[in-house]
Amino acid sequence: MAEINKKHVLFCCGVLLAVVVVLAVVCVALYFAVFRPRPPRVAATVVGSRVSDFRVFPTPVLNLTLDVEVTADNPNYASFRYGEVVTVVRYHGDDVGRAVVPAGEIGARATAAVAATVEVDAVKVMYTPYFPVDGIAGALPFETTTTVAGEAVVLGTFKISVMTVVTCTVDVCPLREEEGTPRCISTVHVG
């Protein structure tokens, strides 16, 4: 009788071990196929510029506003929480404008757009040594850098931290009140 109990115990242990192995394989497959955290895709674009006033004499005046739109696509099955979205505008490497959009959250498998309006400090632009040359050429080269940093948490356990930096260059023509086509480069830092 003791021998029969040993066989039943061994059989039950074997079945239990097989069930645990199958469950582990299913969990690993689900993690890599479905629940694996992925970095969000972020794109920033200069969608418009407004020149409300431009003159050189008697006193230089340039009132310029750049509109930047940041679009983030979250491919995860969990929400993506991001901190403040910071957009900096530079003219020949000098900071001439900055906008901060408050922190937020993008739902699971959703896309969200965040708009930022940056008022350009015209005094800084006009008193650089580059402004007379660019003004004669008719186009002011600006660079915008937008930084989005956040974290996605899947199943309350698996975390992925992501920081995306999108840099765009755009030429603004104040006399014609128009901007050129922006050229953007996106860099993603995961981990």
Results as ranks from 00 to 15, higher is better:
L66K: 01
V68P: 00
E69R: 09
V70K: 01
V70L: 10
A72Y: 03
D73Y: 07
A78D: 10
A78S: 13
S79T: 15
F80E: 04
R81L: 06
V85L: 14
V86I: 15
T87N: 07
V89L: 11
D94V: 15
D95C: 01
V100M: 09
V101F: 10
P102H: 09
P102D: 12
A103R: 13
G107I: 14
A108E: 13
T111K: 09
A112F: 00
A113E: 12
T117F: 01
V120H: 02
V120F: 06
D121S: 08
D121F: 07
D121G: 07
V123H: 07
K124C: 02
M126W: 08
Y127C: 00
T128F: 02
T128W: 00
P129H: 09
P129Q: 11
Y130P: 02
Y130W: 13
Y130C: 00
P132N: 05
P132G: 05
G138I: 13
P141N: 06
P141F: 03
F142E: 00
F142N: 05
E143W: 03
E143D: 11
T145G: 00
T146V: 07
T147P: 08
T147C: 03
V148R: 04
V148L: 13
A149S: 15
G150Y: 03
E151Y: 07
A152L: 08
